[in-house]
Design a protein around this nucleic acid. Structure first.
Length: 339
DNA sequence: CAGGTGTA
DNA sequence: TACACCTGG
C-alpha cells in the first residue's frame, strides 16, 4: 500500500499533546482500513455485531478519536470519491490478491494453522461502501466533520492542509507527500504500541511528523523530483521497476534531474511513468467545505453503536463523554477563521 | 486498536 | 508498578 519512502524521509516524533488545538485531515479510507486489518481476534476474525456484521472499523474509530479529541485535536475526515481511471488496473490486481488471500485463510483455518490464518485474514480485508457509511454516521453523531473528495481522499486531504503549523494530514501512506501535503502525521496512536503485521505481539511505535519542506531539503529534490522517486519505486498506480528501490530511485533522480531522463537512462517507458507522475502533480481535488465541530449527540451515538451494532451501552456512554471538548461553539466555520 | 484484568 | 494476555463486538 502506498509508496515506500520510509527509509528516505526525515521525521521527528510528535506527541498527541503537541497536536492539541490543531486541525488534522484524516485520510478516512486509509484509517478505516488500518482498523479493519488490525482489530481482530486470535484466528483473524474481525469484531462483529450480533447480526454478524463487521464492527472493527467502528470500534477503532470511536476509541482512537476519543483519545485524540480528549487531547484537544480537531479532526476532519476525508473520504475517497471515484478512483482515477489509471488506477483501475492496479485495483483489479488487488482484488485478485485479496481473493487468493481469502481462500488461503479458509484453508489455514481448516488446518488449524492460526498464525497463517491471521495473516491471510488481514490480506483479505476489504472496506465496503456500507462500512464507510456507518463510519460517517458515527462521525456525524460525534460532532466530527467529514467530506468526500472528487477522487483520492489522500490527495484531497493533502491539499486541504493550509500552510501554517496548525494543520496536518494523517495517513500511514507516504503518498500524501507526493500529493504535496505540507505536513504528514503517521502512526497516530495513543498507546504507543502497535501490533506487528502477522504477529500477535505489539511493538513501540511513536507518532511521527514529516514536513515536506524538510524532506525536499534533506534529499536535495524539488517536489516534482520527489514524485519521480516515488514513481520509479512504484506507487498505487504503477508497479515500479525491478531492482529499483528507494536508494537507486533517489540516485537516479538526483543524477538525471527529470523523470523522463531518469526513465530513459533506466531503459523504461518514460511516457507511462510521466502519466503516473501527473496523478500526483495534478490531482483531482475540490474545494474544502466549511467545517464545524460538535455538538456531540450522545443519544444518536448510542442508537447507532448500541442499538444497531451491539456495543455495550456503559462503554459507549463513558467514551462519548470524552468528546465534550468539541462542544466549544468557537470551532465552527471556515478554516481561515481558526488561527 | 485500546482498555481492562491477572500475575509477579 | 510493569507487563503479558484477553476482550470487545
Amino acid at each position: 500500500m502506498g509508496v515506500d519512502l520510509g527509509s528516505l524521509v526525515p521525521s521527528r516524533t510528535v506527541s498527541v499533546r503537541e497536536l492539541s488545538g490543531k486541525v488534522l485531515f484524516f485520510d478516512g479510507n486509509n484509517v478505516l482500513y488500518q482498523f479493519l486489518a488490525s482489530i481482530r481476534g486470535r484466528d483473524g476474525t474481525p469484531l462483529k455485531d450480533s447480526r454478524g456484521r463487521v464492527t472493527s472499523h467502528l470500534t477503532g474509530l470511536l476509541y482512537r478519536l476519543a483519545n485524540l479529541v480528549e487531547g484537544g485535536v480537531l479532526p476532519v475526515f476525508v473520504w475517497d470519491g471515484k478512483p482515477p481511471e489509471d488506477k483501475l488496473a492496479t485495483i483489479q490486481e488487488r482484488r485478485e490478491r485479496r481473493d487468493a488471500a481469502s481462500k488461503a485463510w479458509e484453508k489455514a483455518k481448516e488446518e488449524g494453522d492460526l498464525e497463517t490464518a491471521r495473516v491471510k485474514a488481514q490480506q483479505a480485508s476489504r472496506l465496503s461502501g456500507e462500512m464507510i457509511e456507518q463510519a460517517d454516521a458515527l462521525l456525524d453523531a460525534l460532532g466530527v466533520p467529514s467530506f468526500t473528495a472528487p477522487s483520492e481522499g489522500e490527495a484531497q486531504a493533502a491539499l486541504a492542509v493550509p500552510e501554517g503549523e496548525g494543520f496536518a494530514s494523517v495517513s500511514q501512506d507516504y503518498d500524501a507527500l507526493l500529493f504535496g501535503a505540507p505536513r504528514l502525521v503517521r502512526n497516530l496512536t495513543t498507546t504507543q504500541k502497535r501490533k506487528l503485521p502477522g504477529k500477535d505481539k505489539r511493538v513501540e511505535v511513536k507518532p511521527e511528523l514529516i514536513r515536506l519542506e524538510r524532506v525536499l531539503e534533506e534529499l536535495a529534490l524539488t517536489r516534482e523530483q520527489l514524485v519521480g522517486v516515488g514513481v520509479l519505486m512504484g506507487t498505487d498506480f504503477n508497479e515500479g521497476i525491478e531492482g529499483i528501490g528507494p536508494k537507486r530511485a533517489l540516485d537516479a533522480m538526483q543524477e538525471h534531474g527529470t523523470l523522463t531522463k531518469a526513465a530513459k537512462a533506466l531503459d523504461e517507458d518514460a511516457e507511462t511513468l510521466e502519466l503516473v507522475a501527473e496523478i500526483f502533480l495534478e490531482p483531482d481535488v475540490g474545494d474544502v467545505p466549511d467545517l464545524s465541530w460538535g455538538p456531540v449527540e450522545e443519544e444518536a451515538v448510542v442508537d447507532l453503536l448500541v442499538g444497531e451494532h451491539s456495543f455495550s451501552e456503559d462503554r459507549v456512554r463513558s467514551t462519548v463523554e470524552r468528546f465534550s471538548s468539541l462542544d466549544d461553539p468557537s470551532r465552527q466555520g471556515s478554516l481561515e477563521d481558526f488561527f
